[in-house]
């Protein structure tokens, strides 16, 4: 750890984030194995398509538990838009798509991230409900079960698209971001660029945890 780095995420946050990311990835991959017969081979390394189905189902249960913690932990910061600055940010697409002289300052999460969070939370809950019904199709009315498959596939399309963009922007699309997920310590320069408002607020409140400096109080999520 280098002096001057700032703690952006705590250990609990990172564990939940990784659990969600890995289970979501496993669900996408195993789901693909069932969606396209040309991907049936993914089941081979798990000992057959039948095992793949159960890997999907039980990872689904793990995903549901993680989703609960994700929503509880991030709802306040990422679940509500703060107007009007979030609107202004969206009008210029956060400076991601064309050159913008001054991107409106955002807090801990920018509106793009908030939208992603809401999609994951919304679709995640939908995947859980539809998935559970699809797991036990004989216990529910046939017509209902049939539409569950449609919603599950729709949720998959949505989650996969957002997940990939998120992956890109969290890594090579925005260098320095991955540290927030790996060690939790990020540079001041990165924060200034990505989350200036949060940086200012934390500094103002004296809550900023800077490596090598005595910390005044903990940020925390109340867990």
């Amino acid at each position: 750890m280098r002096k001057g780095l700032i703690q952006a995420t705590d250990a609990f946050e990172r564990i939940v984030h990784w659990s969600l990311a890995i289970s979501c990835l496993i669900l996408c991959i195993t789901g693909l194995g069932m969606m396209f017969q040309s991907f049936n081979f993914i089941g081979t390394i798990m000992g057959g398509l039948k095992s793949l189905k159960y890997v999907h189902n039980f990872t689904g249960l793990f995903f549901m538990a993680t989703l609960y913690f994700t929503i509880r932990m991030w709802w306040k910061e990422a679940g509500v838009f703060s107007m009007p600055e979030d609107m202004e940010w969206m009008m210029c697409a956060g400076g991601y798509l064309w050159h913008v002289d001054k991107v409106p300052e955002v807090g801990k999460y920018n509106p793009g991230q908030k939208a992603f969070f809401l999609v994951v939370a919304g679709c995640g809950v939908m995947m859980a409900i539809t998935g559970l019904i699809m797991w036990f199709p004989l216990s529910f009315p046939t017509e209902l079960v049939r539409w569950m498959f449609v919603l599950h596939a729709l949720g998959f399309v949505t989650i996969f698209a957002f997940f990939f963009v998120h992956l890109y922007l969290g890594t090579i699309g925005s260098p320095g971001s991955l540290d927030a997920m790996l060690s939790g310590w990020v540079t001041r320069a990165w924060l200034k660029k990505q989350h200036p408002k949060w940086l200012k607020e934390m500094e103002h409140e004296g809550k900023l945890v800077v490596y090598g400096e005595e910390k005044t109080s903990t940020g925390g999520h109340g867990h």
Partner: peptide, 18 residues
């Protein structure tokens, strides 16, 4: 990535740290 390019911090680019 190839047209717009990644979003980089304005300063301190050589010390990404962490």
């Amino acid at each position: 990535y190839i047209i717009h390019g990644p979003k980089l911090p304005d300063e301190d680019q050589n010390h990404k740290g962490g």
